[in-house]
Amino acid sequence: MIDINTIKVSLTFPPSKVTFPLMTKLVRVFELEVNILHADVRLNKTGKLIVELTGETHNIDDALKYIEEMGITCHIFNGTLTWDEEKCVHCGACTSVCPSRALTIGEPDYTLSFDKEKCLVCGLCVKACPLNVMCLAQRE
């Protein structure tokens, strides 16, 4: 049986590695499916990518080792965002810092809406929430 897994990781590229074609390597060498969720890349500056990687577990493990060897810092998100909907006042402050627009608010009813698929589990909303109702929980 093939063991397929999906993980969400944040990759921090030192300025010298920003031009390195890592995504191509992950696809070709490790046969991973790559979904770029967020990118902040500028020439000669520290770059940041948040990607979702899907593939056979042993390939993912090998790819993570390879990424580290290349001098690229890798952080695996294994949390999930939860919030106390009862205590939330739907002010919208959390949406102002959400980089992936997983948290949004607007018409028709200005109720806070959360798209789990888009969430980068970065935790910025946890600190930005003035009512302190957001929480990063470890995934099972």
Binding site: C91, G92, T95, S96, R101, Y110
Partner: peptide, 20 residues
Amino acid sequence: GNVVINGKKVPTAPLSSMKV
């Protein structure tokens, strides 16, 4: 949800609860 500042699209967010 967005305004343009210096030619760049910038996300906007409320701090006041329209719902309440």
